[in-house]
């Protein structure tokens, strides 16, 4: 058992449950878990009490986080939400298959938690529906809600950001998956206005999409100097993120619209 414990632990694909209406772990999920693994030491030193995933889908990511950080005995508790009831049930099965647990709620983003959970989340992970689609597909029933992101794939992301800001604790970290088409540098600028610094933890290009896992944290040092730093900040981000060039537009083709 000792040697097993030394291996980096994440969820195992063979133990991840599934359902036809639930998004399966894919490049974006793997990239997000890779970002958590890349930050593993920092996350352990961060000593989070409450971790939260918005849009838990198959449960692959929250299960991996729970395996990385440990459970109640380590003083960590997990909350995961999804608007799709099938996804929440599948997440429950995936967690159980790995012998870990999280509190699960079927809800839209964090509806019902925004008052009492404000300022309590130390680590938040989000793999949002980021695929550019017509607005009327956003929040649709079933698996569509897992990828349909509206104009520039930003409709749900732009709703999540202020909620994340509200729920994150003083020392809270947010890890979020974005696509080049989402204009990540603009997202970082929006978060900068709310007082957050940001950094790309993982960047991954596949045939279909160019993914960035961005980490946000409250940047108390730079809050006062916001205006002075803006030009430097944009400069540094633009050097991190390639210009808007990968989005081929929505042509109504399902295979192109799906995140995978």
């Amino acid at each position: 058992m000792a040697s097993y414990k030394e291996l980096p632990k994440t969820a195992q694909i063979r133990l991840v449950s599934s359902h036809e209406e639930v998004y399966e772990p894919c490049d974006d999920s793997f990239a997000l878990v890779d970002a958590l693994l890349a930050d593993r030491t920092k996350l352990l030193e961060h000593r989070p009490m409450l971790c939260m995933e918005i849009g838990c889908g198959s449960g692959y990511v929250i299960t991996s986080l729970a395996l990385i950080l440990g459970q109640e005995g380590s003083g960590v508790n997990y909350i995961a939400t999804d608007i799709n009831p099938h996804a929440v049930r599948v997440t429950h099965e995936t967690l159980e298959a790995h012998g870990v647990s999280a509190e699960l709620i079927v809800t839209d983003i964090a509806s019902g938690l925004e008052k009492r959970l404000a300022g309590l989340v130390d680590v938040m992970i989000v793999n949002p529906p980021y695929v550019p689609t017509p607005e009327d597909e956003v929040g649709a029933e079933g698996i569509t809600a897992s990828w349909a992101g509206g104009e520039n794939g930003r409709s749900v992301i732009d709703r999540i950001l202020p909620i994340a800001d509200r729920l994150l604790s003083e020392k809270g970290w947010l890890y979020m998956v974005t696509l080049t088409a989402n204009n990540p540098s603009e997202i970082c600028l929006e978060m900068k206005k709310k007082g957050y610094a940001s950094k790309i933890v993982v960047q991954r290009s596949t045939e279909e999409e160019n993914l960035h896992i961005i980490k946000f944290w409250r940047d108390f040092d730079n809050e006062v100097d916001e205006i002075n730093n803006q030009s430097t900040f944009m400069g540094s981000l633009l050097s991190q993120i390639p210009p808007f060039s990968f989005w081929r537009g929505n042509n109504g083709n399902d295979s192109d619209k799906n995140k995978c």
Binding site: I83, P85, V88, R89, H92, L104, I105, V106, T107, D108, S111, G112
Partner: peptide, 9 residues
């Protein structure tokens, strides 16, 4: 149900 609250409106 099965330990999961449904807060959908």
């Amino acid at each position: 149900s099965k330990g999961i609250p449904n807060m959908l409106l």
